[in-house]
Design a binder for these strands. Structure first.
Lengths: 345, 345
DNA sequence: TTGTACGCGTTATCAC
DNA sequence: GTGATAACGCGTACAA
C-alpha cells in the first residue's frame, strides 16, 4: 500500500538506507557495482523518491509559486507558460494561484505559498502596491514581479517599457493626422494601466494636443468591457477618430462596438491595441498593436528567480522595449485629410 | 534566519510542542485560555505552518497536479482556472505542467507529480491513450480526465458530448442547404478531434451526402494552422461552401484565410467553430460555434477529484451536452438557393 | 488538560 | 566505502 522507500530498498539489498540514498544520488562515495545493484533494485521495486521528505530535510522544495491576476486572460496564460517552461527545464515545479486582481487575495496567496515552502515566487501584474510591499518583503522569499513597477525597487522585476511603447503608439496615431484620440484603459488600478496612460498623455502634450477628460474611459481588460467603453466614446458629441486601448482584448471589443455603431475601422476610427496576442493579426481588420514577448517575459522572470535562488545578489530590473506592429486598424484621419471622403454608398 | 516552528513557540510559551500543535488546530483537548495564549504568541512570532512537514506526516499534501497540453491556448487557461478555483476553495494548491501534446512527456509529468506526492491529478486532453493507461493506473493516484475518453473507462472523466455537438453543428449547415462541407481538424490525434470528425461524418451520411476525403484537412488548433488549412481547402477545384472547424482558434484562422482569398463569410463560405471562446462573439462576423462551459468543466473535474480523495468510490463520467450558438458566420448556401448571387462589384 | 515518545522519508554528519 | 545516528517540522498514540 505505502509507496516503497529507501529503507525498503535497503532491507532488500542488505545495505543501510543512507547507502541507498547515496547510490540513487550517484554519489562517488559508494562502490560502483553496489550502486548499480541498488539502482537496479530501486527501479525493479518501482521506487519513486519522495520530494516532500527531501524538501523537509534540504529546506528547498524546488518549487516556485506563480501568482496570476486572471488565468482566463490569454496574456497571462502565455507568460505563465514561459515561467513553467524555464522552471521545468531546471526541474522545478510550479504552483499557480489566481488572485483575481485583488490585492488582499494576492497577499493571502503569497502567504499560502510561503506555507508550502516554495523557493521563490513570480507575481504577474501585482496589485499590492508600495504600501504593502514591506509586508511581502519580510516573508523572506525571493519575489520577481512581472509588469508591475514599485517606485522603490523593492523587488526584482521584468516589465515592458509601457510608457515608451504607449508614447510610440500614440505618436503613430498623431502622425496619421489624428487629434481626437481616446484612451480606453483598465479599471483595476494596475501599474501598467497608469503607465500606458502616462505615455498617451505625454504624446498628446508633446504634440501640443489637449488631454480631454471625456476621451478617457475604463474597460476591464476583456472584450466585453472594451466594447462597452468604446460605445460610450462613440456616443460622445465629439467622438474620437482614434482609440488607443489598454490591451488587445479591449481593442477587439472596441472593434466590435465600432462595427455595431455602423462605422468602419480604420476609415472612420483607428484602433491601436497592446500585447500583440496571437489573435491580433487575425482580427478584422488586423490590429495595429504593441508587441509584448510574453513567453520570453515569463522565462526571463523565472530565470531571474532561479539566479536569485542560486545565490545571486543585487537587484535585476529587466525593461523590455515594446515594439509597435503596424497593421490595418490604423489609417490617416479622414476628417484631417479632406472634408469629403465619405464612401459612395 | 530559520522560520519559527512549533517548538520555538512551545519554548517561548513554556509548554510542549504537541500542545502548541493542538492549540493551532483548535483541538478541544487544550484549555481554552492557554490555547488562546499560544495562538497569540504564534501570530506575534510570525509563525507560518510548514505544509511540507505536515504533508510528510499526514501523507496528504493537499495539492493536486494539473497536466495541460498547451497553456497558451485560452481554452486550457479557462479550464485550468476552474480547476484552480474549486481547489483553492477547498484549500488545495495546484501544480501546473505543460506536456505540449506529447504522450511521453505527459507520462513523465504525471510521474513527477507522483514524486511531489500530489493527492490527485487532472489531465486535460490526454494523449496517453488506452495503451499506456495501465501504466498510469498503477501509480495509484486518482486521475480525472478532461475531454478525453478512454474506451475502457479506466479513469473518471468530464467531457463534452463531442459527437452529439458536432452532429448538431453539421446538421445546422446541412439545413442551410450546404452539401460541400469541409472538416478542418486538429493534427495531434486527440480523442476530441476524432469524435468531432465522427459527428461530422455521421451528419453527412445521415443526410445522404458523401464524405469526401479532400474536404478533410488538418490544422493544429491555432489560428495560424487554421488559416493554412483553410487556404488549402479554398485552393481545391471544388472548394467547400461551409467549413466545420475543430475549434474557434482554427475557425478564426479560417475566417482570415477566406478574407484573404477575396471571399466573404457567410455569403460565400459558412464557418462553424467549437468552444465558444470569449472572442468568438467578437469575431467579424461573430462566430457560430459550439459552447463548452470551460470553467465549469474544470470545476467539475476538480470536484470529482476531491470526492475521490474523500473516499468516494465508483467511477464518475460526466458528459456535458454541447450547445450550438448560432451567430452570423453561417448562412444559407448561395449556390444552392440560386445561381446568380454574385455581388455587383 | 498536558507531556513523552515516536514516526513520516529523506539527507547530513559523523564514526568505523 | 559503509553504517549508525541525528535532524528536518509536524502529528499522534499513549502515559501522566
Amino acid at each position: 500500500m505505502k509507496p516503497v522507500s529507501i529503507k525498503d530498498i535497503a532491507k532488500a539489498a542488505g545495505v543501510s538506507h543512507p547507502t541507498v540514498s547515496r547510490a540513487l544520488c550517484f554519489s562517488p562515495l559508494v562502490k560502483a557495482e553496489t550502486a548499480q545493484r541498488i539502482r537496479d533494485m530501486a527501479t525493479a521495486m518501482g521506487y519513486r523518491p519522495n520530494a516532500v521528505a527531501r524538501g523537509l530535510v534540504t529546506r528547498r522544495t524546488r518549487t516556485i509559486g506563480a501568482v496570476v491576476t486572471t488565468l482566463t486572460d490569454p496574456f497571462h496564460g502565455e507568460v505563465l507558460s514561459g515561467v513553467e517552461e524555464l522552471a521545468s527545464d531546471h526541474h522545478y515545479s510550479v504552483f499557480v494561484a489566481n488572485c483575481n486582481a485583488d490585492a488582499d487575495r494576492e497577499i493571502r496567496v503569497v502567504k499560502l505559498f510561503q506555507e508550502r515552502r516554495v523557493d521563490g515566487i513570480v507575481v504577474m501584474c501585482s496589485r499590492v502596491g508600495a504600501l504593502y510591499a514591506p509586508l511581502l518583503r519580510e516573508l523572506k522569499i525571493p519575489i520577481v514581479l512581472i509588469n508591475s513597477n514599485y517606485p522603490n525597487d523593492v523587488f526584482d522585476s521584468v516589465a515592458i517599457d509601457n510608457l515608451g511603447a504607449s508614447l510610440q503608439a500614440v505618436q503613430h496615431l498623431i502622425s496619421l493626422g489624428h487629434s481626437q484620440i481616446a484612451y480606453l484603459g483598465d479599471q483595476f488600478g494596475l501599474d501598467s494601466d497608469r503607465e500606458r496612460f502616462a505615455g498617451y498623455r505625454q504624446a498628446l502634450l508633446g504634440a501640443g494636443l489637449p488631454v480631454v477628460t471625456s476621451l478617457t474611459v475604463c474597460g476591464d481588460g476583456t472584450p466585453e468591457g472594451g466594447q462597452a467603453a468604446a460605445a460610450r466614446l462613440l456616443a460622445l458629441p465629439e467622438p474620437p477618430t482614434a482609440i488607443f486601448c489598454y490591451n488587445d482584448q479591449s481593442a477587439i471589443g472596441a472593434l466590435s462596438a465600432i462595427r455595431v455603431h455602423g462605422l468602419r475601422v480604420p476609415e472612420d476610427v483607428s484602433i491601436v491595441g497592446f500585447d500583440d496576442l496571437r489573435i491580433a493579426s487575425f482580427a478584422n481588420p488586423p490590429l495595429t498593436t504593441v508587441r509584448q514577448p510574453r513567453q520570453l517575459m515569463g522565462r526571463t522572470a523565472a530565470g531571474i528567480l532561479l539566479d536569485l535562488l542560486s545565490g545571486s545578489v543585487g537587484q535585476t530590473h529587466v525593461q523590455i522595449p515594446g515594439e509597435l506592429i503596424i497593421r490595418r486598424s490604423t489609417a490617416t484621419c479622414s476628417t484631417a485629410v479632406s472634408d469629403i471622403q465619405e464612401p459612395a454608398i
